[in-house]
Nucleic acid binder design. Structure first.
Length: 719
RNA sequence: GCGCCUUUAGCUCAGUGGUAGAGCGUUCGCUUCACACGCGAAAGGCCGUAGGUUCAAUCCCUACAAGGCGCACCA
């Protein structure tokens, strides 16, 4: 018996060596797998953002993905687990900006190319950490196929999709209202906003003969009309007339228009229209051909149109304007008003609606296909209720702004006209067909989700790559529920659009791992737990078990170190059971199955039932149950009952002894097999410590547990 | 405003149409020849509230309550 078995299991003494053994075996690569392997089974690792270290959520995700892959590899599929890393555009740029701010630097004083190169170096460094950490988690992924979202072949596919969308009329350049972050100096998609409820002052201001109510008096210099409800009899006499409005910087004439959208019961029923700085007003501006007069600049300051207020920040200007209006006797009254505003999801600053020429994806036709795919079960989503959430979001979705004014990202392959807002994806065009001006390259970059939304087919070498033909569509997309819209929905839409097929058949959404007190982990709270510390302390297998047992799809979990510790004890239990059996190995006389006692036959049968059960659970994504059943069986049936009872039988006659030993060895061996997807390190370590002859005597000749066949059950894996 | 989820042992969470489980914790006893990262035993739950369906509900249905989340361009 291996001397190392005599002391408690020390994960750190084995894990690195075992991972190297797997990696060097070449079996992470599907083409090296032995046997027929007709069915491809692919999981793409959601590429971690290469802007920091892995967090516990990655550990949970990687574990779930690796369990599926290891199970399918053992069950005979041609498995590909493809790793990657994400440049994570805006996210990474924000992280990097914060980092250099600490050194007293700012990205706004840097050349764009300089910034790009610095972030690239930063990202490459983080990517290396991340790769080491993914290995430490035991992920059996094919590193030879690793992809980075900025790899030239990925970018080429993304460009192709953009061009196709443009040619199909599904991408258009529009001068429309977008969410602008005055801090980050870029527009954001609707998803990248966070609604915040706050209480502001509602100002009632004299507008000539009328009174309007607004929370933004500082935008009055951009007003182009006043709108009332068409049936509001209070204002009949003013409809379609011009009214003279006095402002602190002079008079202006505004047309009084009517629109059904005006609520007569809100405020005074008269609404000032500022198309350049309010989404509703912008729509109305389009409807009635009103000009959009910009009075606030990209930094959130009032511009030269605002006379003495020019240069003031919005909030400052609001106060001063209100004060001046009061002095002029134009401020009728104020009210306290609770409403919801859009803020930047990263910095929390109030977003300024701005009218900018940007690229938009026309969502409706894409969404319709995605909805259909889910409705017809071409894609299933777990937890089931998230299909409702998915449908809810896609139904009535608005067009997607994919232009970002940041350096760190994939440049948009388009040429744009500075004079008239024309733009084209035909980069050979040099002259604006509208106004004749010279076209210039679009300085913007893509929303990072536009490119990662193409990850499944881009990584596999669409359209002609062998991998694309073999491994697409992928089997399961496993990720956190909080990126269902950002990523999953976009992948389904763009996958269907570009390839005509769904990118994956099943979506498994795990919940967020929160800290012990159920708080969301975040760097600012300082409660982020490093999974590497945990696996160093308890072993990777214990961490994996601690994360997945009791963890159901979609449900958040509180990180429990005591639970992980419990599974470290379990690992030691496995270790000692193996020791018990292997200590008795020299008493073994059989080289194949001896005649079994009735009891031992029953014990093996009981094990088969467990194997069936666990297989069904794995097929149906019930990893939390499969793991718990294995734990329970191994400890409370195998160790507590079978081994305890075997002690007496091992003192009986030779036939009984051989039968008992066979049952023990057989159950141990098969348990290692079933446990392997969950606890790959200790099971493979023991497999390697077990003499090959012993394994062979219970029917297993494979040198590596990783590719040992899964026990035959009546349950065949779902496709 | 619309929608979704959760409510089970002290804590964190599983689970099933026939009156419940795990990890940790608690109590008692054990250095028993695989394991003290252990063994044996025990305490602890009207399975959120009120109705309904059913022979039978913690599990299905309907309200309600509490907590959480997502979506939402009414100034």
């Amino acid at each position: 018996m291996d001397e190392r078995l005599k002391k408690p299991y020390q994960p750190s003494e084995h894990e690195e060596h075992i991972y190297r053994l797997w990696e060097e075996s070449g079996f992470f690569q599907p083409e090296n797998l032995t046997g027929k392997r007709e069915k491809a089974y692919t999981i793409l690792m959601p590429p971690p953002n290469a802007n920091g270290h892995l967090h516990v959520g990655h550990a949970l995700a990687t574990t779930l993905q690796d369990i599926m892959i290891r199970y399918r590899r053992m069950a005979g599929d041609k498995t590909l687990f493809l790793p990657g890393a994400d440049h994570a555009g805006f996210e990474t740029q924000v992280v990097y900006e914060k980092k250099i701010e600490k050194d007293g630097r700012s990205r706004f004083s840097m050349e764009r190319e300089e910034l790009y190169q610095e972030i690239l170096a930063f990202t490459n460094e983080n990517k290396r950490f991340m790769e080491t950490e993914v290995r430490a988690l035991g992920a059996s992924c094919d590193w030879s196929r690793e992809k980075f979202t900025l790899d030239p072949d990925i970018v080429e596919v993304v460009y192709g999709t953009f061009r196709k969308l443009f040619d199909d009329g599904l991408v258009y350049r529009g001068k429309r209202m977008v969410n602008w972050c005055t801090r980050h100096q870029t527009s954001l998609s609707d998803l990248e906003t966070a609604a915040k409820t706050q209480t502001d002052t509602l100002y009632y201001i004299s507008y000539g003969p009328l009174t309007v109510a607004t929370v933004r008096p500082e935008t009055m210099f951009g007003d182009v009309a006043v709108a009332v409800h068409p049936e509001d009899t209070r204002y009949t006499e003013f409809i379609d007339t011009s009214i003279a409005v006095t402002t602190p910087i002079g008079s202006m004439y505004l047309k009084v228009i009517t629109d059904e959208a005006v609520d007569p019961d809100f405020g005074t029923g008269a609404l000032k229209i500022t198309p350049a700085h309010d989404p509703n007003d912008f729509e109305m501006g389009l409807k009635y051909s009103l000009p959009a007069v910009e009075v606030i600049d990209q930094y959130g300051k009032l511009n030269e149109r605002c006379g003495k207020y020019a240069g003031m920040k919005i909030l400052e200007a609001r106060e001063v304007v209100a004060k001046d209006l009061t002095e002029m006797g134009l401020l009728i009254k104020t009210e306290s008003y609770e409403h919801s505003i859009s803020t930047c999801y990263k910095c929390g600053k109030t977003l300024e609606p701005r009218v900018l020429p940007q690229w938009f994806v026309r969502m409706e036709p894409l969404a319709a296909q995605a909805l259909e795919a889910v409705r017809t079960k071409k894609v299933t989503i777990l937890p089931e209720y998230s299909e409702k959430v998915f449908n809810n979001w896609l139904y009535g979705i608005r067009d997607w702004n994919i232009s970002r004014q940041i350096a760190w990202g994939i440049p948009i392959p388009a040429r744009v006209c500075g004079a008239c807002d024309y733009g084209t994806a035909d980069i050979t065009q040099t002259k604006c067909p509208i106004c004749g001006a010279t076209l210039t390259p679009d300085p913007d970059t893509f929303d990072t989700w536009f490119s990662s939304g193409q990850w499944p087919f881009a990584t596999l070498g669409y359209p002609d790559g062998e991998d694309f033909k073999t491994f697409y569509p992928t089997a399961v997309l496993e990720t956190a529920y909080d990126i269902l819209f950002f990523w999953v929905a976009r992948m389904i839409m763009l996958g269907l659009y570009r390839t005509g097929k769904v990118p994956f058949r099943h979506v498994y959404l795990h919940g967020l791992v929160r800290d012990v007190s159920r708080q969301k982990m975040s760097k600012s709270k300082g409660n982020v737990v490093n999974p590497i510390e945990l696996l160093t302390r308890y072993g990777t297998d214990a961490l994996r078990m601690g994360l997945i047992i009791g963890n159901t799809p979609g449900a958040d979990s509180a990180l429990s170190e005591t639970k992980i510790k419990g599974y470290k004890h379990f690992a030691n239990k496995i270790w000692n059971v193996a020791r018990f059996v292997l200590e008795r190995a020299d008493e073994i006389e059989f080289t194949e199955r001896p005649v079994l006692t009735e009891g031992d036959a029953a014990r093996l049968k009981e094990f088969s039932t467990l194997a069936e059960d666990v297989t069904v659970d794995l097929n149906e994504f019930r990893f939390h149950l499969a793991g718990e059943k294995l734990y329970h069986y191994f400890w409370h049936t195998f160790a507590d009952t079978i081994i305890e009872e075997s002690k007496a039988r091992l003192k009986e006659d030779s036939d009984t002894r051989q039968s008992t030993l066979f049952a023990l060895l057989s159950i141990l061996t098969k348990s290692l097999i079933l446990l392997h997807p969950f606890m790959p390190f200790i099971t493979e370590t023991l497999w390697q410590m077990m003499p090959g002859k012993l394994r062979a005597s219970v029917g297993y000749r494979e040198a590596l547990l990783m590719i040992t066949p899964w026990p035959n059950t009546s349950q065949s894996p779902l496709s």
